[in-house]
């Protein structure tokens, strides 16, 4: 049931047009951060306002929306955003990755492969991959213009010199179509390979920082690395204790005060799907 007090998908039409134009520019120049006049939303900046605005601009009434935070559909902020769109756009919702036409995510790419026609919308806190090396927008904009990414390579190289490896485990920078260095949002680097050549359209919204960027389907995305220190996507060296998956990203859960812990899929839909199909992990029970 749509809340009649608000326009379809909350935003007024002029605001949606402005966001839609920015999304199209982002699609046309993959990896480039398009400035847009982000609006104040009824949820705080930093809680997904960029993703929410991008989703609002893309939704059609026939969509089936999935919202995840940390891979899970039932985390409080995911619940809150899902409820918002049920209320203001009247769209159907789902937890099944395969059934969703549009997925809004914070910090994860689903472990179930995405398919053509799906849109994955990322909530982005700091869209600028160079921000923590150079705090000034005026400077980083110049670096992107000149394709001057030396500072980033120096940082990664210093990591290797100090730690023997690149000490970035999430929000790991990528290069898009051999042109723009892009921040993939704070996804674990385990998810980075899924950015490249995905059949789904990937849109990134940073509300507070007023930026939108995009990866069209089948866009070539490379995680930055060095020949002698190639990029390694990593995760906990375990299988899921509930569904026995060895190919999913795992959360570590402390289960007692004796140091006992277990590892479970961060993607709750992926894990549930495997258990329903009869897979049983070390601590799992057979699905009924």
């Amino acid at each position: 049931m749509t809340d009649q007090a608000y326009n379809f998908a909350y935003l007024d039409e002029q605001t949606k047009r402005m966001i839609r134009r920015a999304i199209l520019k982002g699609v046309a120049v993959p990896g480039y951060q398009v400035p847009f006049a982000s609006r104040e939303m009824p949820m705080p900046y930093g809680w997904g306002t960029g993703g929410v605005q991008v989703t609002a601009a893309c939704l059609v009434p026939e969509d089936r929306l999935k919202v995840i935070d940390q891979g899970a559909d039932d985390t409080t902020n995911a619940v809150s955003i899902r409820k918002f769109f049920q209320r203001v756009a009247g769209v159907a919702v789902t937890e099944a990755t395969q059934e969703a036409t549009l997925i809004q995510t914070r910090h994860r790419i689903p472990d179930t492969s995405l398919s053509a026609g799906q849109i994955l919308v990322y909530q982005v806190p700091i869209p600028e991959p160079l921000r923590f090396l150079e705090p000034r927008e005026s400077e980083t904009r110049k670096m992107h213009e000149l394709e001057d990414y030396g500072l980033m390579h120096v940082k990664l190289y210093e990591d290797i010199a100090r730690h023997g490896q690149i000490a970035t485990s999430y929000a790991y920078p990528v290069k898009v179509e051999d042109r723009y260095v892009m921040d993939p949002s704070p996804i674990p680097k385990f998810d980075n390979p899924k950015l490249s050549n995905s059949p789904a359209l990937q849109l990134f919204g940073a509300g507070r920082e007023q930026r939108i960027y995009a990866l069209p389907p089948f866009t070539h995305v490379v995680s930055l690395d060095f020949d002698d220190h190639p990029f390694v996507p990593s995760k906990a060296d375990h299988a899921c204790d509930l569904c026995d998956a060895s190919d999913s990203y795992l959360d570590e859960v402390i289960i007692d005060d004796q140091g006992g812990r277990m590892f479970v899929c961060s993607d709750t839909d992926y894990c549930g799907g495997r258990r329903a199909a009869g897979h049983v992990g070390r601590l799992g029970e057979e699905a009924i």
Binding site: N7, F8, A9, E13, K16, R17, R20, I23, L24, V27, A28, A57, C58, L59, V60, P61, L201, A214, P216, P217
Partner: peptide, 19 residues
């Protein structure tokens, strides 16, 4: 019905430009 018609149209434009 501008909100709905433009939502459908944008989705088509988005698909066209991204594919």
């Amino acid at each position: 019905d501008a909100p709905i018609a433009s939502a459908h149209a944008f989705r088509a434009a988005l698909t066209a430009l991204s594919q």
